[in-house]
Amino acid sequence: MIVRIMGEGQVKLDDSHFPTLNELDDELLAEVESGDEDGFRRTLTALLEAVRTLGAPLSEDSLEPSELILPAPDATIDEVRAMLTEDGLIPD
């Protein structure tokens, strides 16, 4: 799957990594819903770092369609709240 981190670029990520990412996504959803700013920041950072670490970056001139778009590392809790679905950022 091709994942875009807003403001950073795209990463090719194997589907086998999604159970790990979904756990972080569930935590992030709960923190956004409860307004836990510190937890939100910590979990967003962990989620994006996991995508960067587990995935392979695509070249900057690559124009692959992104199947999943994640917020920028400096996104606010309100910006992420606007991106959420009932499943979080990452569909189950």
Rank of each mutant, 00 (worst) to 15 (best):
A30W: 03
L13P: 00
D14Y: 05
I2M: 03
T20R: 15
L24N: 03
G35C: 05
G35S: 04
D26I: 08
E37W: 06
E27D: 10
E33S: 13
E37R: 11
A30C: 04
E31G: 00
L21Q: 07
V11K: 05
D25Y: 05
I5W: 04
H17F: 15
D36A: 15
G35T: 04
V3L: 01
D26S: 13
S16H: 11
V11Q: 05
S34L: 06
K12C: 13
R4V: 02
M6H: 13
D38Q: 10
G35F: 01
I2G: 01
L24W: 04
E37D: 08
T20Y: 15
L24F: 11
M1G: 00
M1R: 02
E31A: 09
M6V: 15
L21N: 05
M6S: 15
E8W: 12
E33W: 05
V3G: 04
D36L: 10
M6R: 14
E31S: 06
K12A: 14
P19R: 14
I2S: 00
P19Q: 11
I2V: 14
L24M: 12
E27A: 11
G35P: 05
D15H: 14
R4G: 01
P19L: 14
G39P: 01
L28I: 10
V11E: 01
S16N: 07
E27F: 08
D25M: 09
